[in-house]
Amino acid sequence: MITTESTVRQVTLAQAIGEALAEEMRRDPRILMFGEGTATKRPDLVAEFGPARVRNTPLAEGIIAGTAAGAAATGLRPVADLLFAPFLCYAMDEIVNSAGKLRGLSGGQFAFPMTILAMTGAGWGVGAQHNHNVEAWFVHSPGLKVVMPSTAGDMKGLLKTAIRDDNPVLVFTDIGLLEQAGPVTDAAIPLGRAALRREGDDVTLISYGKTVATCLDAAARLAEQGMSAAVLDLRSLKPLDEAAILASVRRTGRAVIVHEAAAPCGVGAEVAAILAEKAFAALKAPVVRLTGPDAPAPGNFMLEQALLPSPDAVTAVAARLCAGPVPCPA
């Protein structure tokens, strides 16, 4: 993609979502959007596309997701905004049992081209019923795709692709990144491709969402200490860019996986398993995960922030791995 200066602009990640929605709805009249407060909060979309395509819904996540699935199976391409990731618990049947499974169970008779939006992560101190990084649940469910971008540009490009995809795609927005600005273009970004944010030879820091910035910070500190850290932003959790993970870790021989979601059966566990299965011979040190705790996120901004993987911790663990043979890091 060749971009000229005029097509690259700086917008916030929140604005990037609005741009992706507007551009896609302009392109395809089958796309419509609904959710709790969607029309109220996006008057520009209502003005351009009308109230039939941009709708407020009752506070009822199950029927919002079910309506999206039913509409997707019969000719529309809905985008449903379920607001906060923990609210997806009310919509699990429609997302997991219907949208995810009824294509396979019906022998491929129906497709479910739908996009689910949900916010998550530390940033507002809203507590565990608004902040719970549940992305791995959906990675574990057949028929679904999952993305969690770390930049405004990725959010716009990946959301556009999600809307064009003929499968249900969950697009998780990291609350902590909503107001972060970055360059955007009009181009769609394919799912399933990680972004190598920084080249490196000694250790690969693998992450997604807001902890990508944590890893970049750590990589800069490691460079000051004479260590060269690569930073790989997964962006797409399913499909997962296994080739990029393996290529980087085969080069560095060391991997630290960093995410805000809890460790048990998380995306980091999957990445670690892939490395154990397919890059064992290249590993010079144990694979380490640094994650949020297996605990409800506190509704207390200071505590919420304190429980995130920190640049200090990532730097320390990576440095220890690079120092030489280690039995097992803390």
């Binding site: 079910g66 309506t67 999206a68 039913g70 019969t74 000719g75 529309l76 809905p78 219907s98």
Partner: peptide
């Protein structure tokens, strides 16, 4: 489950 889906089919 069918009750959750029929609204979407009717919306189409």
């Amino acid at each position: 489950g069918e009750l959750g889906l029929c609204t979407g089919v009717a919306l189409s």
